[in-house]
């Protein structure tokens, strides 16, 4: 078990966004979180990644308590994330984005750069080499020098995933990785997600499109109003009556 969430509660003022939620993500799987709009999916990501402090409950990663740590600390522990509104550094090129994604592994700091120490050169070289690998992995090598303004939505989606991968995570949280792309591009990104899992990185994703979720997930968690409705394999969850009522049923009717 890689990530474990126990009895997690997050409330804003009087509004409970996540209500006594338990979940666990196993090493090497693709774990999907589904639920209607406003079910608390993104809030859950924000709590796990440290953007919000939980009101109560416990989050354990690799057996260590990470509850309430700052986002940068959580990233350094090995949890990377993407954002629902595709976030990349808009004034960097594609390549620069990936390079900055790897900077948390640099052993030298500002003074190393100022005095041009060997470690600083080594860090710079390593981050470049790592970035080239990531570009290759995410299929962005050809556009590596492009400014972000000249990239397509799909390329930015890939880049945001690449940026997260550049931190060398053990677990990657993807917030709606295929929203806003066409069918063909979607298949490409789904392949990329599988490739990430096959490379040994555990994937946890939020997605609306049932076809995607059912196709790639090893296990699924369904939530509504911040509460767990079901957790299990694709088959188990998709046959759960509550899930069908709350989510799938609406889709079928539509």
């Amino acid at each position: 078990m890689l990530l474990k969430v126990d009895n997690l509660v997050k409330s804003f003022g009087g509004l409970v966004a996540i209500d006594a939620l338990d979940l666990q993500v196993n090493k090497g799987e693709i774990f999907s979180i589904i639920g209607p709009n406003g079910a608390g999916k993104t809030t859950l990501f924000n709590v796990i990644s440290g953007k919000y402090r939980p009101s109560s409950g416990k989050i354990t990663f690799e057996g260590k308590d990470i509850t309430g740590l700052k986002p940068y600390n959580i990233a350094r522990r090995g949890i990377a994330r993407t954002f629902q509104v595709t976030a990349v550094f808009s004034q960097f090129t594609v390549f620069e984005n990936i390079v900055i994604g790897h900077q948390l592994h640099a052993k030298s700091g500002m003074f190393g750069a100022v005095f041009g120490t060997g470690q600083a050169h080594k860090d710079a070289r390593e981050s470049r080499e790592k970035s080239e690998k990531i570009l290759e992995f995410t299929g962005l090598t050809d556009i590596s020098d492009k400014p972000i303004a000249n990239t397509t939505q799909e390329e930015r989606k890939r880049l945001s995933i690449g940026l997260a991968l550049a931190t060398d995570p053990k677990l990657i949280l993807l917030d709606e990785p295929v929203s806003g792309v066409n069918m063909q591009e979607m298949d490409g990104i789904i392949d990329l997600i599988r490739k990430i899992r096959d490379a040994g990185i555990t994937v946890c994703l939020i997605e609306h499109k049932m076809r995607v979720v059912m196709g790639i997930s090893d296990r699924i968690l369904a939530i509504n109003y911040g509460k767990k409705i079901a957790e299990g394999t694709v088959k188990e969850v998709s046959s759960n009556q509550q899930v069908i009522d709350a989510y799938l049923g609406v889709k079928d009717a539509a």
Binding site: S49, K70, A80, V88, F89, Q91, I100, G101, A166
Partner: peptide, 19 residues
């Protein structure tokens, strides 16, 4: 580059491990 990253998007900078 991490200074520039902070200027562009603080949340994203934190998410990739920049304090």
């Amino acid at each position: 580059k991490s200074f520039l990253a902070v200027r562009q998007d603080e949340d994203l900078a934190e998410a990739i491990g920049i304090n």
